[in-house]
């Protein structure tokens, strides 16, 4: 395999990095489904099929109130979509799901059919991190799927580096923490120490259903049901695991790198 062959091959392949966000986003797999949309108005008052079928008890129907779906707990199994007789819960095929506040993930109230997407960081942090954000990833009992999809963001197709976002080995070199996993009791000390080791100003991103609310293991006594109880979280990205496009959208939204074409809410 000579240098000549390698160079020819490279020239033939050209640039393999996707155009997004300067071009349209790559399509989600057709069966992915995307974010959930809850139209509580269509709900039948006596029906609670979705509540019983949800494996993480993400859906609640308090008496007299409309249905409330917590997208932070959701592991996107789409059982509720299948079982709903009135199609009150549907999938919108939207890859955008990242939010700044935990409450923004609870759907169902009027005006909250879909997620209120994340706003960018305040100006001071945007000036610091907008073009250079170094993240330290901490897997606090994650199953490795969120980690794999974060890893894939560094490959040449997605190329996270072109936004100045990079994953570093030492929290001393990092601006923020990316947490996956429900934060087991055995990882509590390590997570706290990593957070303390980050120089300020720092941000925290909770990636995946586990890091937001405990994921499929919600309620187990061996962990803390997510990172919110231990460190202040600035960005929540739901999914199990979130599609790389969702993660990228969340990060760029945080840094206001998406451009006006995709700004929403």
């Amino acid at each position: 395999m000579s240098v000549h062959d390698t160079l020819l091959n490279r020239l033939k392949r050209g640039c393999e990095t996707m155009a997004y966000p300067k071009g349209p986003a790559p399509a989600l797999p057709d069966r992915h489904g995307g974010a959930l949309k809850v139209e509580a108005a269509k709900c039948d008052a006596s029906c609670s099929a979705c509540v019983t079928v949800c494996p993480t008890e993400a859906i609640a129907r308090p008496a007299g109130k409309p249905v409330a779906l917590d997208l932070g707990r959701c592991i996107f199994c789409a059982e509720c979509v299948t079982v709903c007789p009135t199609k009150a819960i549907t999938q919108s095929n939207d890859h955008r799901m990242a939010v700044r506040q935990r409450e923004d993930l609870v759907l169902g109230d009027t005006g909250k059919e879909q997620v209120r997407l994340a706003q960018a960081l305040d100006e001071k942090l945007r000036r610091l991190f907008g073009r250079s954000l170094k993240l330290r990833q901490v897997s606090a009992a994650g199953c490795n799927a969120c980690e794999a999809d974060t890893n894939v963001l560094g490959t040449i197709g997605w190329d996270l580096g072109r936004f100045g976002i990079q994953f570093v080995a030492s929290p001393r070199h990092a601006d923020g923490l990316l947490i996956t996993g429900p934060v087991s009791k055995n990882m509590e000390l390590a997570l706290k120490k990593t957070y303390i080791a980050l120089p300020e100003p720092r941000i925290v991103i909770a990636l995946g259903a586990c890091a937001i609310a405990g994921g499929p293991f919600i309620g187990h006594p061996q962990h803390h049901n997510g990172a919110s109880g231990l460190v202040p979280v600035d960005l929540f990205i739901p999914g199990c695991p979130p599609h790389p496009l969702t993660i990228l959208d969340g990060l760029l939204r945080l840094l206001d790198r998406l451009g006006e074409s995709d700004a929403r809410r």
Partner: peptide
């Protein structure tokens, strides 16, 4: 801020 040496947690 004086913090302990990073020790991998």
């Amino acid at each position: 801020r004086i913090a302990p040496t990073w020790d991998c947690g």
